[in-house]
Structures are given as structure tokens and as C-alpha cells.
Write a protein that binds this DNA or RNA. Structure first.
Lengths: 194, 194
DNA sequence: ACTTTTTCATAATGACCGTTATTAAACCGC
DNA sequence: GCGGTTTAATAACGGTCATTATGAAAAAGT
């Protein structure tokens, strides 16, 4: 019993996700969040708890809604296809929305005051988890013969992630899709072959 | 005439530079800055003006004191030496101080509230200027025959910057020097030869 | 020694931060 | 319709933000 919720929690989550994407965790104030969600402050608190929990929900949604190309890419037959698929999907994601460029994770992982440290740690872990998935995929490729014996799966994964992070920074700095594609091509130019 | 300044402005600038490096522009509060500088608030205001101007002074100092390897690298004979020198000096800079890892520019360029937009724009411009210097150097190399005719100086410069930015993110996430060196090696393996 | 000028430390300013009491409104079972 | 319960909106909370007014302390000119 009791009164029904008058706003769509999923819609509100989509809205606050975009705010966090654009401004980062600390840069997003409740004034921004309530305006974007079209909902007053206490409603956000009752739906999500505090700001940190709300960011966690937004991060989960980011992964399942915008980073869904990652698990799909890992299933491609060759590591070159894996890397290519990830790079080009990341470029698209980083430049698709003019008002929130770059990557939600990278935009929030770098700077900020001490009180944002727990959130930063969550983002660091998320970044590391993605890299670990890549490394495991490349280790498998090495066992399957898709990568040469001299290849270092950990270094390849770290390199690919570095290029992705760098492109996220460049996208935030206003890079065009074409320029990012040139960066991706250069990164792929000497991908180790069997 | 008048009373003398009792603190060393240069020392104070070094101190606030480290705070900005670690926490970014918005993440650094005056409480942090005064504590690090060992100087009360009005002294910082009289010496540097407001927070934005103080950050600008810190950024200038960062370039002349920590990024001095960049102009030196541009004078090396081959583009491969240029890229190698920059990558390894960046790794050293990004991991040298455990309490402020990564890069001051990249740590401040990404997210933040709207009122930090002017500072963000300054950092974006600084990033673009460094990339332009690289591009011009690579164009020269192409004319000199150090790079093949098929090489794209703009793409090479953007790629090198992307790897640098990515390594700055990874350093902030706790990467070891050895892992970053593996990333740099992988990046250099794609470098075009004459 | 005294006035002038600059720097110093203390403490206050208004604005905004994330978070909640508080109260009115809307729904349920009865 | 009516009590019980949940949500909604208004407005307030203490704390911190960047910035500065205030007045004491210190140095230079006369």
C-alpha cells in the first residue's frame, strides 16, 4: 500500500548517468542531477540512497548499456579482430554524444578531492577488470596459436587499454572521429600475427 | 618601503603545484593549498591572485620544470629517438612521485563542474600545443626522409599523445614503471621506419 | 621617533555542497 | 469514507567552498 512513485527510476538513472559522464563524480552536483532527472532531491535519495550509491548504479548501467561491445568483442576469433572491434566501438562511444564526450570511467578516475577516493577506487577496479579480461583473452589466443610465442598478453592488454584511455582524453579535448580512427589505425598497424 | 614578504613565493608555488598535480584544479581546496604552502590564505591571494591564476602559474612551472624533456626530445636526430625519449621520460615523470602520480595536465583536463571550464580550456590548449609541436617535428622528418612518404605526421603525433595520455591514466591507477615500459615498447614497435 | 606602506593572521562573508526534517498529497486495504 | 503508509515538494541543516574585510605587526622614509 502507499502512494505510487510518479517518476520512472530507469529514466532518472539514464539522466544522471549523462550528468556523471559529462562532469565526473564530484563535478556533478545535486542541482545538476535533479534538473537532469526532472525530480526533486529527496526522490533521488529515496530511489538510489546517497550520491556514491547513485554513481555506482550509473556505472553498472554504463557497462551494460554502453560497454556491451566489450564482451561481444572478446568472442571474436582473432585478437586482431578483438582489438579492432573494441577500438572502433570505443571511438564511436567517445564521440557519439557531443555533450558528454569521452568515457564515464576515465572522466571520473583521475583527479578529485579525498572524499571521492572510494569512488575513484571503484573506477580503478573497473578499469583493471576490463584489462584483465583482455589479458585472459590474449593468453588464450597464445595457447591457440593466434599470437606468437614471443607475445606478452599482459603488455598487449595494457597497450590496448592505454590507447583507449588516450583516445578518451582526446575525445574530451574535442578530437574528431576521423582523427581518432587514425590513432586506432596506427595502434593496430603492428599487431602481432601468428 | 613596507614590510617584507616572509615566505618564499617560489617554494609556495612548488608546494601548490604538487597539490594541483595530485587533486586536480577543483579537487584542490584552499585548505589543502595553504597547508602545503605553509602560508595563510591571504598570502596566497596577494602572491598569485585567485585560484585560477595560481593554477596558471603552477602550469607554467610544470612545463618549465617537469616537461623540459619535451623541447630537448624534439631536437633529437630521428623521430624514433624523439618518440622513445618522450615516452620514457613521461614514464619516469608519471611514476617518480608516489603521492602525485600521472600528469598534471591530464589529471585536470577531464571532468569537473562548469565553473572550471576556463581552466579546462587552458589545459586542452596546452595539450594541443604539445601535439602540434610533435606534428611539426614529424613533418620536418618526412621532408628530411626520416619518415616514409606514406607516413601521416598528424596521425603519428596524435597516436604518440594518445599513448602518453593513456599511460598517465594508468600511472594514476597505480601501474608500475615496468608495466608502463612494456606499453611504451609496444607503442614503439608500430613506429614507421624510413 | 613617527608616519607611511606593505604583509601578516584571524575571522567573517555569501554561496553552494550533500543530506534530511517536515508537511502535504496520493494511494492501499478496510 | 477512513486509518495507515508511502511518496512528493518545500525548506532547512551543518559544513565547506573561494574570497576578502579587518586590524595588528614589521619595515622604510623622513
Amino acid at each position: 500500500m502507499g502512494r505510487h512513485r510518479e517518476f520512472d527510476v530507469e529514466k532518472a538513472l539514464d539522466a544522471v548517468l549523462c550528468v556523471f559522464w559529462r562532469k565526473g563524480y564530484e563535478g556533478a552536483s545535486y542541482a545538476d542531477l535533479t534538473e537532469a532527472a526532472g525530480v526533486e532531491r529527496p526522490a533521488l535519495y529515496s530511489a538510489f540512497g546517497n550520491k556514491e550509491a547513485m554513481f555506482g548504479r550509473a556505472l553498472d548501467r554504463y557497462y551494460e548499456r554502453y560497454l556491451d561491445y566489450l564482451p561481444k568483442a572478446l568472442q571474436l576469433p582473432t585478437t586482431r579482430e578483438v582489438a579492432t572491434h573494441i577500438l572502433y566501438n570505443a571511438i564511436d562511444l567517445n564521440t557519439r554524444y557531443a555533450d558528454h564526450t569521452g568515457c564515464l570511467v576515465i572522466n571520473g578516475v583521475l583527479a578529485g578531492s579525498d572524499e571521492a577516493e572510494p569512488v575513484r577506487q571503484v573506477l580503478i577496479d573497473a578499469r583493471a577488470a576490463a584489462e584483465a579480461q583482455l589479458r585472459e583473452r590474449f593468453e588464450r589466443a597464445k595457447a591457440e596459436g593466434d599470437l606468437p610465442e614471443t607475445a606478452r598478453p599482459d603488455a598487449l592488454a595494457a597497450f590496448l587499454m592505454a590507447v583507449l584511455h588516450g583516445m578518451a582524453v582526446q575525445a574530451k579535448a574535442g578530437f574528431s572521429r576521423e582523427m581518432l580512427e587514425a590513432v586506432a589505425e596506427q595502434a593496430l598497424s603492428t599487431w602481432p600475427a601468428r
